[in-house]
């Protein structure tokens, strides 16, 4: 484990390979829920939480179940089931113990099951931090850190986009570009500007 590796993961996950702007994961939710800042922020927090937790769970499953028993081909199916079950569980728990919290972000949880970002990060972790049959050194910490950073990247894109779209509400945008098309074009320009971090090196 090196410090430099962590920094590289951070810059890569937040800016260069931003989940939304470069990997296009979670794009549907990004376009659909970024019209106002408050819900966008709530959604981001929910996504960040689920990505982190499911990365931890899937790491253990991959490391201690799938690899030792030679079942790596069951990765997709087992990951998505575990994520779905976990999200369902969290939703039930939150609804029971804290109705205000549920109203704040619980309503977004069911959406997150089919958010490609969650499964995407789990798959990515198992691609990046495992060699053919074993975990690389520090694999767990890298996976965990990458999950958090992806969440940060998601939140950053979501926050910027929601601010911009709130402002555009007051503008006289050409009708054919209203909503979706313009949101994509803004995302494109944001992606171009994040390009400035390309080739980042310490």
């Amino acid at each position: 484990m090196e410090m430099g590796q962590f920094l590289a993961i951070f810059i890569s996950a937040v800016f260069i390979n931003n989940v939304i702007l470069s990997r296009f994961l979670g794009l549907c939710s990004f376009i659909a829920i970024s019209k106002e800042t408050k819900p966008a922020l709530a959604m981001s927090l929910a996504v960040m939480f689920v990505i982190t937790m499911s990365s931890i769970i899937t790491w253990f499953i991959y490391r201690f179940l799938l690899i030792p028993f030679g079942l790596a081909y069951l990765r997709t199916i087992s990951f998505i089931l575990v994520i779905a079950a976990f999200v369902q569980l969290v939703e039930m728990v939150i609804r029971k113990i804290s109705p205000p919290l549920y109203r704040f972000f619980g309503i977004y949880l069911p959406l997150i099951t089919v958010n490609c970002a969650v499964l995407g990060v789990a798959v990515l972790n198992s691609d990046m931090f495992f060699t053919k049959s074993s975990a690389v050194a520090g694999s767990f910490y890298y996976s965990l850190f990458q999950a958090v950073c992806v969440g940060v990247g998601y939140t950053l894109a979501m926050l910027l986009m929601s601010g911009i779209r709130e402002r555009l509400e007051l503008c006289n945008v050409p009708r054919v570009f209203k909503d979706f098309p313009l949101a994509f074009i803004i995302a494109s320009i944001m992606s171009l500007s994040f390009f400035g971090f390309n080739g980042f090196k310490f």
Binding site: I189, M190, S193, F194, F195, G196, F197, G199, K201
Partner: peptide
């Protein structure tokens, strides 16, 4: 630390 020598345009756009 970036790959480009100059960052003014990217910084302002961000």
């Amino acid at each position: 630390w970036g790959g480009y020598p100059e960052g003014v345009s990217y910084a302002i756009l961000m």
